[in-house]
Design a protein around this nucleic acid. Structure first.
Length: 396
RNA sequence: GCUGAGAUGGCGGAGUGGACAAUCGCAACAGUCUGUAAAACUGUCGCCCGACAGGGCUACCUAGGUUCGAAUCCUAGUCUCAGCA
């Protein structure tokens, strides 16, 4: 026993949805589970206690960001992220692979008007040179260093360093990036083993390999087969939610998910809008992280049942129509925000940019999404998952 | 009452004869957001027509005037602020 394992506890007879439990040295995670993103060692505006109360069991942190600030030496003096940020439950860290995507194109606010420097990454076979978004300094990541960094962070689950391609991309480039990601995983596994053995009785930290292949069927299937053929603790699906349509994302899951072995946990990287959740769980995804609930919360968008004054699953509380609205965000929601405050108050907090607004909206959105996932787990248990899905997605 | 300064779009505040429907900031209105360069970013922001290009109308306190042409110069008036009575 490595101190990390996954058990499938129940399988939906009508779909690939399943219930499971991931055991880590810092606790267990009932799956399917939504994983909030705390890039810089904090889920913005929330405390670890808040997260526990919301039912969060796994915390997502970014290697790239914590490597830059505060830096790994600081975290090392605490013995890792758990003590540093006061979260003692399971942690999953991203490798920096997503920054190969996100820093690769000038989105807005490029640090340098110079075309040469407009992109902050430079990829080679050996690794990736990043230009810090803080100060422009150069930093070199390889599969090996990413593994070392994640061991230093002490997270319970590591993601192997991969190349998340931009969208759209050509089949040629997608193959090139995928093959490179595959070679990088072999290197990651070797370094992971070295790290595990480097200190006697070191608590085990799990490794997930990441599937790539953009939106190309042959590549996705090849990548899934290859990643699954290697010895990792779990499987991550990357390279989605990078600009493709929801239909394309669903197709990727159609191609990839049937290939994955039942005994390994599957993490879908970066997906988690309300309507996506049903789709990914239906495909057999166990954990999935997404910035959406917390990011849109800070922009004043809060989840609401479809039909509650919205076409989709959220409303913009900053809109004038809520200025005098005495109702809670969602009258049926029993989160702290909805049981204590009105839409008008939230509207006011956002209009005057008060910190409490960001916090209350984040609390609500995370409560909302966690409640939904909990309801989905119950529905899988009692066989009503597809009915619940229909109920939610038909209402839209 | 006298002397001086000033009145510009929702607000603050540029502009001081043509490049001005008027820089800029704020506010307002809307859009975007899926492994967080994100408490961010983008657009609109006098009225009307237009998908766009563009066109028409009304505007820089009020009323006259000078000029080919005025937010900008001149005259009178109204109001505001400061100092003095």
């Amino acid at each position: 026993m490595r101190g990390f394992h996954f058990t499938e506890t129940h399988h939906d007879p009508h779909s690939a949805a399943r219930l499971g439990r991931i055991t880590t040295p810092h606790g267990t995670i009932d799956t399917p589970a939504f994983v909030p993103v705390g890039t810089q060692a904090t889920v913005k505006s929330l405390t670890p206690d808040d997260l526990h109360t919301l039912g969060v069991e796994l915390f997502f942190v970014n290697t790239y960001h914590t490597y830059l600030r505060p830096n790994l030496d600081v975290i090392k003096t605490f013995g890792g992220l758990h003590a540093f940020m006061g979260w003692h439950g399971p942690i999953i860290t991203d490798s920096g692979g997503f920054q190969v995507f996100s820093l690769a194109r000038p989105k807005y606010k490029p640090l340098d008007r110079d075309e040469e420097n407009a992109t902050l990454v430079n990829i080679s076979e050996d690794g990736v040179t990043f230009r810090s978004h803080w100060d422009g300094s150069e930093h070199y990541f390889t599969p090996e260093t990413s593994m070392q960094y994640q061991w230093t962070l002490g997270s319970d689950i590591h993601i192997a360093f991969d190349e998340c391609t931009t969208y759209p991309t050509t089949p040629e480039y997608a193959r090139k990036a995928m093959d490179r990601t595959h070679r990088w995983l072999v290197r990651s596994i070797a370094e992971h083993a070295r790290q595990a053995a480097s200190i006697p009785n070191r608590p085990y930290q799990a490794l997930y390999g990441a599937i790539q292949g953009s939106i190309y069927e042959a590549l996705r299937k090849e990548s899934a087969h290859y990643i699954c053929s290697l010895d990792t603790d779990g499987i991550a699906i990357g390279g989605v939610s990078v600009g493709e349509s929801k239909e394309e994302m669903r197709q990727v899951l159609d191609w990839v998910m049937p290939v994955l072995p039942a005994q390994k946990p599957r993490h879908l990287l970066g997906v988690g809008e309300i309507d996506d959740i049903f789709v990914l769980i239906e495909h057999g995804v166990d954990t999935f992280d997404c910035v959406q609930p917390t990011r849109i919360a800070r922009m004043g968008r809060v989840y609401v049942l479809p039909g509650e004054g919205s076409q989709g699953f959220d409303i913009d509380i900053t809109h004038v129509q809520y200025k005098q609205d005495t109702k809670p965000i969602d009258p049926q929601c029993s989160c702290y925000t909805c049981t204590h405050f009105s839409r008008a108050y939230l509207h006011h907090l956002f209009r005057v940019r008060e910190l409490l607004g960001y916090r209350l909206a984040s609390l609500h959105n995370l409560y909302y999404i966690n409640s939904l996932v909990r309801a989905i787990r119950r529905s899988i248990a009692d066989g009503s998952f597809l009915e619940l899905k229909k109920q939610w997605l038909y209402n839209k």
